[in-house]
Nucleic acid binder design. Sequence first.
DNA 1: GTAAAACCTTGATTTGAATCAAGGGGAGGT
DNA 2: ACCTCCCCTTGATTCAAATCAAGGTTTTAC
Lengths: 236, 236
Amino acid sequence: MSVNPITGEVYRIDILKTIPLFSGLTGDQLKTLAGIAVRMAFKRGEIIFQDGDNGNGIYIVESGKIKIYKLSLDGKEQILHIFGPGHTFGEVPVFQGKSFPASAMTLEPSDIVFLPRDRFVDLISTTPALSMNMLADLSRRLRAFTIQIEALSLKEVPARLAAYILTLSKEQKTPGQVRLPISKAQLANLIGTTPETISRMLKKMGDTGLIDVQTKTIDILDKDGLIELSESGRLQ
Amino acid sequence: MSVNPITGEVYRIDILKTIPLFSGLTGDQLKTLAGIAVRMAFKRGEIIFQDGDNGNGIYIVESGKIKIYKLSLDGKEQILHIFGPGHTFGEVPVFQGKSFPASAMTLEPSDIVFLPRDRFVDLISTTPALSMNMLADLSRRLRAFTIQIEALSLKEVPARLAAYILTLSKEQKTPGQVRLPISKAQLANLIGTTPETISRMLKKMGDTGLIDVQTKTIDILDKDGLIELSESGRLQ
DNA sequence: GTAAAACCTTGATTTGAATCAAGGGGAGGT
DNA sequence: ACCTCCCCTTGATTCAAATCAAGGTTTTAC
């Protein structure tokens, strides 16, 4: 039985088993992972690592929510990902280079599992199922970045906002209604605009009958209109 | 000895050996790769695959130059990567999803090597050196995208242009001088602006004594000034 | 439960860069 | 060498969204 070297608690295989990256692993392989796993608890708004720091292992969100982001010198923020339970992050410096290409911060109180680099690399290079899962995960992220670059470069703010609402409505299983999982200030940093602009665009989308906004909840009144807007659209 | 199934020619292991992705492979493994490799010749401006097409293998630039890019509905283009000899592309749908997240086109007459998915995946899952190389390659690309998103979202055009010139000057071993490897129209699509703006900004950077532009060649007159501009800077 | 702190909205103004428009210069083909 | 086409430049104008400014509202903390 493996004991967590930091907290001293037995680290539960059950949690690792639910993580997509580790699907298809044998019980023994999961036990090995559990043996090297370290769990850390973070409060809301704590920095997990910073752009440029040296990375030395991969991180898994066990509970809570984190953002991966870049800051400009004058303090503007661009969010690259928001990850919830089951997602892994911080892999890039494990496989290439030394430093993190971006920073990570909790958006809520979060439990994070850390797997130190060397033993994780040993495992991945002897476990084809794990390396294929990892390749799939990095590929998924490349795909997501492709879409984000396209949005930032080729689409205007209303289209990006419409696309975000449609993405939420796919993730959440409440057709015709969507709940914003983050503040509008964070949403602005995610789609590459400002809170003021978010506010104005949501209002305009309300005025034109696409949606109805109540604080954190948005009713989708005209899904086709939103799709149209997200693809090519200009608002109004 | 392995024979290319399309062209019928013997496919040279020597070329595969020079490709970073295949460094550290044994002679036998390279022979296996050579056995499944297909070489294709493209003219300048030919489409290799398109955004949304199903992918069924990885591609390697043997000679020439290609761009990976996204198009908007109204025809605007954002270039994601420009790859020369030795670079691989088209991996995402091999590991995740089915379709290409972007399009690929030659910028020059190019020879492209194709490795069909199934046999490549077989090899990668039995060859730790290959899977680690692949993970490093995808990680390198994630890092590059991170920088591109930061540039598009947090930096203005003069800063992006300065950063591009500095990147070129690192790649090319001619200190104080840089040769543009692509047309200014393509450069505009790479850094997310228009040819008119490129033209104006290069002129301004000339006026302020940072650089001296002669058609395709740029002399770097004030490297520190360029670095400053690329980081935080505003021009003039 | 109340105060403080975030967060959000709305309006006025500025600004960086796109677009529209037209003319100039090179490179490649005949 | 000449013509054509493409690429590039320059100027005038427009436009989307950022910024600046101030007031209102929700959330969090004590």
